[in-house]
């Protein structure tokens, strides 16, 4: 399969001198198209930092991250921003919806920023799949955690991105909601033909992930998942 994202000997160090902490230590792996990649590990092992580097939010201290063969961090900021908007989708543990916008406005926000027309059919299908059609007029503070995360997933998918980056997407949810949201996320990814890079500390999801990396002290130490 074609390599969509390449992580090459990437390192990220927080702080400097004696207080420096190596969060990601010479990590290398590829994200193929139409795949589901998982990174699991204990809290503080560096998995979120790795995700942020892969998604163009955090410049690595050394090494490189490529997208479709182009180095993400050698691109100009504007090009990288447009790439994030059109090719990437983001889902965070804390949802990070804009509180001043309704659920529908939050979902449409990337379209608005990219000045893209609204594909009503796709939007309806997405909302029906995520079961939020009845809650679109509500504001984030009026939604439950599970509903907010579904809105965040819809926002991540509205631009039909090639990759979705999910950072502990079910971390704030109870077991029932967690399973429901995760299944919906996978369903969406498969339905809409995106790749998914998911960071989680919950290894119970490994059975549904194509390739699962285990991370410890900033290093990838194990490769598993359905393909392995």
């Amino acid at each position: 399969m074609e390599t969509l994202i390449g992580v090459n000997e990437s390192v990220y160090i927080y702080g400097n001198s004696e207080a420096a902490v190596t969060a990601v230590d010479r990590v290398s792996f590829d994200v193929p198209t139409n795949s589901v990649i998982g990174v699991v590990g204990a809290s503080g092992c560096g998995k979120s930092t790795l995700l942020h580097m892969m998604s163009g939010l955090l410049t690595p201290s050394s090494g490189s991250i490529t997208y479709a063969g182009d180095d993400l961090y050698k691109m100009k900021d504007k090009k990288r921003t447009i790439l994030r908007r059109e090719q990437f989708g983001f889902i965070f543990q804390a949802y990070h919806l804009l509180p001043g916008l309704s659920a529908l406005q939050n979902i449409r926000l990337p379209l608005l920023l990219g000045n893209k027309p609204i594909d009503k059919d796709y939007e309806n299908r997405l909302c029906q799949t995520l079961q939020i059609s009845q809650r679109l007029a509500h504001y984030p503070s009026e939604l439950s955690g599970g509903q907010q995360q579904r809105v965040a997933i819809a926002r991540a998918l509205i631009m039909k991105p090639r990759v979705i980056f999910a950072d502990e997407p079910t971390g704030n949810l109870d077991t029932a909601a967690k399973n429901e949201v995760f299944e919906l996320l996978l369903e969406c990814v498969h339905s809409f033909g995106s790749s998914l890079v998911i960071v989680t500390h919950d290894e119970s999801v490994s059975s549904q992930i194509d390739t699962l990396y285990t991370m410890s002290d900033g290093k990838l130490i194990h490769k598993g998942g359905r393909e392995n």
Partner: peptide, 15 residues
């Protein structure tokens, strides 16, 4: 913080 979220999901600096 909200600007940073908007930036993350694709808002350019000029926007």
């Amino acid at each position: 913080s909200e600007y940073a979220i908007e930036r993350t999901i694709g808002a350019t600096m000029s926007q």
